[in-house]
């Protein structure tokens, strides 16, 4: 996936929100996007997924996914792209699941619609997916509703639904934010594991540098709609060129980022 000089503007009131973003996601790679809220990282993801809100439009630049430019996409092409090629999970997973439909059915639906499985096959595949995301009791979860599970478990369900049609790219937009630290680590482990096993490329979006540092090959630092730093993770963390990145890192040293940097340094050595 390649994003070139992406600019996003809001039509009312007229203003540009993202001022030219460039990045490349290699097959099987992991890209981290870091920035505070309002830095344009979520809008960038929405543009990539073709779900920009009303009154917000992609004004310039291209998104190329496996060689095809999404600018020319019609409704049907977007529907075919989403789920099969690119998918996403977000913060507050519970709200991204239909509150009135049993969880299993929602994954089931994706499998039947996107992969044309029969009812029986879809149920089997759903149970397999639920255990693949390490939910302890797939049969139980299958028949439960979103309000009956914890945030960490829901994020696993959402991930299972997202990877069900076998996408190549998964965007995790603040997917671990608001989960408690151990659960956060478990979900990140799950994403890394899926990346290896299912051959996914990941985009990890977070305001938290530590999350990105843990699993990303490359990192992109954004601030008020602009890229302030882009490069391999260890380079950016060890010799940041931008003041803002330095600030982010120094803030994080208090919370144990230094230990991650330390361990990476050891690995490099």
């Amino acid at each position: 996936m390649q994003v070139r000089d992406l600019r996003i503007r809001c039509t009312f009131p007229d203003s540009e929100l993202v001022h030219g973003v460039n990045f490349t996601l290699r097959r099987g790679g992991t890209l981290g996007i870091v920035g505070e809220s309002g830095s344009g990282k979520t809008l960038t993801c929405a543009a990539v997924l073709g779900i920009l809100p009303k009154q917000v439009e992609l004004s310039h630049g291209t998104v190329e996914i496996f060689g095809s430019n999404t600018a020319s996409f019609g409704k049907q092409q977007w529907v075919d792209l989403r789920g099969n090629v690119i998918s996403a999970v977000f913060q507050d997973p519970g709200s991204y699941l239909n509150p009135s439909i049993r969880l299993g059915k929602q994954i089931n639906e994706v499998l039947r619609v996107k992969k044309g499985l029969s009812r029986k096959q879809a149920k089997q595949e759903t149970l397999r997916l639920l255990s693949a995301v390490h939910l302890r009791d797939p049969e139980l979860v299958y028949d439960q509703y979103a309000h009956e599970l914890s945030g960490g478990m829901l994020q696993r369900v959402v991930i299972a639904a997202a990877i069900a049609p076998g996408p190549k790219i998964l965007i995790a937009d603040e997917a671990t934010t608001a989960l408690d630290v151990t659960v956060q680590a478990e979900v990140l482990d799950l994403l890394t594991e899926l990346k290896e096993r299912e051959g996914l490329s990941l985009v990890i979006v977070s305001h938290d540098l530590a999350v990105v540092a843990q699993i990303c090959d490359d990192v992109l630092v954004m601030r008020s709609g602009e890229i302030v730093e882009y490069g391999p993770t260890d380079e950016v963390l060890q010799s940041p060129s931008n003041e803002y990145t330095k600030l982010l890192i120094s803030e994080h040293q208090r919370y144990g980022l230094d230990r991650i940097i330390e361990s990476e340094r050891l690995q490099v050595a």
Binding site: L49, I51, K75, Q76, V79, D80, L81, R82, G83, N84, S87, A88, F90, D92, S95, Y96, L97, N98, P99, E109, V110, V113, K114, V158, A161, A162, A164, P165
Partner: peptide, 17 residues
Amino acid sequence: RQHYVTGAVVRGLNGRR
């Protein structure tokens, strides 16, 4: 406006569904 609608769109379901 609810998130679960976005969720369903992102999973690749078509508008009618």
